[in-house]
Amino acid sequence: MSQLIWAPELHYVHGSWYIYFAAAPSIGPGPDGLFQHRMYCLTCESQDPMAGEEAWEERGQVKTALDTFSLDATVFERAEHLYYVWAQKDPAIKGNSNLYIAEMKNPWTLATQPVRLTKPEYDWETRGFWVNEGPAVIQHDGSIFITYSASATDANYCMGMLKADAMSDLLAPESWQKWDHPVFQSNLAEKQFGPGHNSFTKAEDGQTDMLVYHCRDYTDIKGDPLFDPNRHTKIQPFTWDANGNPNFGKPVPYNYNITSIAM
Rank of each mutant, 00 (worst) to 15 (best):
T68S: 15
F184H: 04
Y40S: 09
E9S: 12
G142W: 14
A166Q: 09
G95T: 12
W240K: 10
V115T: 06
A164R: 00
D169E: 10
T68L: 13
N156G: 06
S151D: 03
T74E: 05
K202A: 11
G15K: 04
A23I: 06
P91N: 00
R216P: 10
I138A: 05
W124D: 03
H140L: 11
G223T: 04
N255M: 14
G206K: 03
S151P: 00
L188P: 01
D67L: 07
A22D: 06
V131A: 03
N245G: 00
Y84V: 05
D67E: 05
K191L: 07
P49I: 08
R38I: 08
H14P: 08
G28C: 11
N96S: 10
A65I: 11
N245E: 15
P182Y: 06
D224Q: 01
K119C: 08
S260A: 08
N243E: 15
D90C: 06
D72C: 14
D205T: 08
C158Y: 01
M161W: 02
A164D: 00
N198C: 15
N96T: 15
P225K: 10
V212T: 07
P251Q: 01
F238K: 12
Y256R: 12
N257C: 01
A166C: 09
D141C: 14
I258W: 04
Q36W: 01
G30V: 13
P91C: 03
D205C: 10
H14R: 15
V13K: 05
D165I: 00
P135Y: 05
C158W: 01
D228P: 02
S16G: 00
D165E: 14
T153Q: 01
H11R: 12
I144Y: 01
F35I: 02
I235L: 09
M1D: 11
V137P: 01
Y100A: 09
V85G: 08
M1E: 13
N255W: 13
V131I: 11
W179I: 02
V85F: 07
S26G: 11
H197A: 03
P251W: 06
N187A: 15
T112S: 13
T64S: 14
S149K: 05
A24T: 02
T201N: 05
F184K: 02
K63T: 08
T112G: 05
I101T: 00
E103C: 12
T74W: 06
S70I: 07
A164K: 04
Y213F: 13
N106I: 02
Y122M: 11
L188E: 13
I258D: 09
D180N: 14
K119G: 10
L82W: 09
S2N: 15
E57A: 13
W240P: 11
M263F: 12
